[in-house]
């Protein structure tokens, strides 16, 4: 076992264990944190697979933004009561069955006898001055510019959808700031002199 392989297995184990942690944790905060670990571990694997840019993006965007969003929502929802794990206890053998089935199939399918790629594909290590960011950038902004624009629209949709769903404007009990009214206010409205009737 080479060092590289050893590191790969460590990361893999970390990733899988934290995935298990995510799905079985009762507290969603713990779940989210497990997920963060999982992401970080897989970012490590991605780096080893020479996808440096994406590994970094995973940490920055996913861990930095999306998972933060998750945590934020979890906090906001203020779930005081932790749910029981009844379903899990009852059905976990079933889950194991799914796992074994899928993994077994996978092992069968990618066996070198069935997949020639598995035996003869040899990843060419990139030279030291190779920049993954540059290479990706070169294709994303040229060859894949159409897809890039569509992705931009998808993000726009996400903004529109999230705002139109979560925005509270239509509810009357919402407290809102009316800036124009705030600016137009006069001195009289700001300050009201009240005569102190109590003591002279």
């Amino acid at each position: 076992m080479t060092l590289l392989q050893f590191i790969f297995y460590v990361f893999s184990a970390l990733m899988l264990l934290s995935a298990v942690g995510t799905i079985i944790s009762r507290n969603p905060v713990h779940g989210a944190l497990f997920l963060v670990v999982c992401f970080v571990a897989s970012a490590g694997i991605w780096l080893m697979l020479q996808a440096e840019f994406l590994g970094l993006v995973l940490v920055l965007v996913y861990v930095g933004a999306v998972m933060t969003l998750f945590l934020f929502v979890v906090m906001m929802l203020n779930l005081d009561k932790l749910p029981s794990r009844a379903g899990f206890k009852k059905y976990w053998p079933f889950g194991i069955l799914i796992l074994l089935l899928l993994v077994g199939l996978m092992i069968y399918v990618v066996a070198p006898s069935h997949l020639s790629l598995a035996s003869n594909a040899i990843a060419i290590p990139h030279p030291a001055d190779y920049s993954n960011v540059q290479a990706l950038g070169a294709v994303i902004y040229t060859q894949y510019v159409y897809a890039f624009e569509i992705a931009a629209v998808i993000l726009l949709v996400a903004i529109i959808a999230a705002i139109s769903l979560a925005f509270h404007a239509f509810h009357q009990d919402t407290k809102r700031q009316n800036i124009s009214k705030q600016v137009q206010t006069t001195a009289a409205e700001r300050l009201r002199l009240v005569k102190n009737m109590g003591k002279e």
């Binding site: 159409y146 897809a147 569509i150 998808i154 996400a158 529109i160 959808a161 139109s164 769903l165 239509f170």
Partner: peptide, 25 residues
Amino acid sequence: HNFLTLYLGLELMSLPIYALTALQR
């Protein structure tokens, strides 16, 4: 004509529909 555009198109089609469904809040 590419898996990438296929996927992006599919998601661009579906995401607004998810929101549309929930629009009756």
